[in-house]
């Protein structure tokens, strides 16, 4: 009996992960290396990859900064009552529960050209929805819990005493953070960064709704793959997908490495 279960598990694994990955690879190179290259040097492909790259960089920076701060405030602050902390703590997980498409829709409803806030920004010449800022906000919404959830348990585990010790030795907040807190949380933060990069790289639903998927403007790598499939341009879709898959595998290896370091220190 056990033998069959093992076989079945392997079959599921191969069908779900290995075969699609191989299919993407073979699809991308079905017309040889030049087919793959031609698909990638299309102006809209280069633009989409750049937009994705830019979104990843901006989102990762913002999410790292505010995620770490949020984690510190949730764990360390004395000025927040426990009730408020508990409430905020559960709110952080909201993006896990809400479908990204709904998240995107909320942003459109709140900041779209027809909304009050969106109209205000439009008037001062700052477009949010169907533009880059909206895509960043949508991706931030989706990735926000990742950093907080990585850093919080580490902060809880190390406790406040080392920081208190530093303060009795004359160190103020900034010095204490860099000299005492940071060395303890750095690997958790790096792990959070890798997760954020991976998640924002592959984000599709929220971005699709918010960006409007305008070619050479707001199209990202994932939405380009979607459009190529719609247009029966299979080779192009596979080529871009392969690039994304390759980056993801790279991130996965990095994740394993940081996870080990996180355990060590």
């Amino acid at each position: 009996m056990k033998k069959y279960w093992i076989t079945l598990t392997y079959i599921v694994f191969i069908v779900l992960i290995i075969i699609p990955l191989l299919k993407i690879g073979s699809g991308a190179f079905s017309e040889g290396f030049s087919g793959w290259k031609d698909a990638l040097i299309r102006p809209e492909a280069i633009h989409a990859l750049m937009v994705t790259g830019l979104v990843v960089v901006v989102v990762t920076c913002i999410n790292t900064l505010f995620g770490v701060m949020m984690a510190i405030y949730l764990v360390r602050s004395h000025w927040l009552s426990n009730k408020i902390k508990g409430f905020l703590n559960s709110i952080v997980d909201l993006p896990y529960a809400v479908s990204p498409v709904i998240g995107g829709l909320m942003i459109v409803l709140l900041l779209g050209p027809e909304s009050i806030m969106g109209g205000f920004f439009e008037n001062i010449g700052f477009r949010v929805v169907y533009a880059f800022p909206g895509m960043v906000i949508a991706t931030l919404f989706v990735t926000f819990p990742l950093m907080v959830r990585e850093v919080m348990p580490v902060l809880q585990e190390i406790g406040a005493q080392q920081e208190e010790a530093a303060s009795t030795l004359g160190a103020y907040g900034w010095t204490t953070f860099w000299k005492v807190t940071w060395p303890s949380i750095q690997w958790a933060v790096l792990y959070g960064v890798v997760l954020t990069v991976a998640r924002s790289l592959g984000e599709f639903g929220a971005v699709l709704v918010v960006s409007g998927n305008i070619m050479n403007k707001t199209q990202t790598a994932t939405t380009l793959v979607y459009q190529d499939v719609e247009n029966f341009n299979v080779i192009a879709a596979n080529s871009v997908a392969l690039v994304l898959a390759a980056i993801s595998i790279g991130l996965l290896l990095m994740m394993e490495w940081t996870k080990r370091r996180k355990g060590v220190s």
């Binding site: 005493q161 080392q162 530093a166 303060s167 009795t168 005492v180 060395p183």
Partner: peptide, 20 residues
């Protein structure tokens, strides 16, 4: 006065040494 300016030394129960 914050702890930084009180001119005190504090030894914690579990020492709270900087482990790194």
């Amino acid at each position: 006065l914050p702890p930084q300016e009180r001119g005190i030394g504090f030894v914690f129960q579990n020492y709270a040494l900087f482990k790194h």
